[in-house]
């Protein structure tokens, strides 16, 4: 699976610069302890569903590719640093930081799409637009579980044997991303 492998490669490449700059918050997102699944965003999201939700307009962009631009969808599920969220129309405006994980997009017309994103931001605006800015994202079918497992083992080894603090943090970030990749790819 050449495509899956290249997907992983770019995820790993993306992590490289982080090794030099572990103290920055921006790059620390992945090292944050995994919090329990969010309590209220989920609850509120589903509350609006009952009231006949408005249309959610989604823009899903990467720096080098526009995956979806202002497309009407019914629901988006994503995992943020606050916990997993299910977003419908008229969701409460939120600024959420993405964790490495699956972004699930449901629309009325198409089949549900699943992407794996390494990190970024999701912003829900008052006018029911959702902007997802990720750094790397790939359709989940393109992920290669075996390559991810190998990379996961490698990252685990390096996270314990790293000489400097910076290397250790970088390896931990990689570890978390690959863990998420393995979980995501295993589920499909």
């Amino acid at each position: 699976m050449a495509t899956g492998h290249s997907a992983l490669r770019s995820l790993a490449d993306l992590d490289l610069p982080r090794s030099k700059i572990p103290q920055r918050n921006m790059f620390r997102l992945a090292t944050r302890a995994v919090r329990p699944i969010a309590r209220y965003p989920l609850a509120r999201a589903y509350a609006t569903e009952a009231s006949g939700a408005g249309k959610l307009r989604l823009s899903f962009t990467l720096p080098h590719q526009t995956l979806l631009s202002d497309v009407e969808v019914t629901q988006v599920n994503l995992s943020s640093s606050e916990g997993d969220m299910g977003i419908l129309g008229e969701h409460v405006p939120t600024v959420a930081q993405l964790k490495p994980g699956v972004i699930e997009i449901f629309s009325a017309t198409d089949k549900p799409k699943k992407f794996f994103a390494s990190g970024g931001f999701a912003i829900i605006n008052p006018d029911s637009t959702l902007n997802i800015n990720a750094l790397e994202a790939f359709p989940i079918e393109e992920l290669d579980v075996d390559a991810a497992r190998r990379a996961l083992d490698d990252a685990t080894r390096r996270s314990t044997s790293a000489a400097t603090e910076a290397e250790r943090v970088a390896a931990k970030i990689e570890l978390e991303v690959y863990e998420a990749v393995v979980t995501a790819a295993g589920k499909q």
């Binding site: 720096p63 080098h64 405006p93 902007n131």
Partner: peptide, 19 residues
């Protein structure tokens, strides 16, 4: 080509300011 995707990305990332 790079600029066009970067522009969509940049606009989408800074849309919060307008809101």
């Amino acid at each position: 080509r790079v600029m066009e995707t970067a522009r969509v990305y940049g606009n989408s990332a800074t849309a919060l300011y307008q809101h």
